[in-house]
């Protein structure tokens, strides 16, 4: 079970959170093409390495935030607020 550092509450057990999948996805405007919309809905990164994802502290403060996690080791390099700039991350 991961130990996730909520930017608002500090480190808490994974069981307090819900993972919302990949983050920083741009939502296209209504007049986008079908292909662009399908890409937004369905295409996700699946890296072996650093994955930027969003988490919801659902059994805590209720806030969403971003996390950069290694999909290999589960190491979490950083967590930051949804509107904060992306911190420097390893490759």
């Amino acid at each position: 079970m991961l130990n996730i550092d909520c930017p608002y509450c500090g480190p808490r057990a994974e069981s307090e959170y819900r993972c919302g999948g990949e983050s920083l996805i741009q939502r296209p405007a209504l007049d986008c093409s079908d292909a662009e919309w399908a890409d937004y809905l369905y295409t996700r990164n699946n890296p072996k390495g650093v994955h930027i994802e969003r988490w919801h502290h659902v059994h805590g403060c209720g806030m969403w935030f971003n996390a950069a996690r290694s999909t290999v080791t589960h190491q979490i390099f950083a967590t930051w607020g949804m509107t904060d700039p992306v911190p420097e991350l390893p490759e």
Partner: peptide
Amino acid sequence: QAAFQEWLQCEWT
């Protein structure tokens, strides 16, 4: 409520 919060916090900030 969870959907509302996700839209408000993650998209329409």
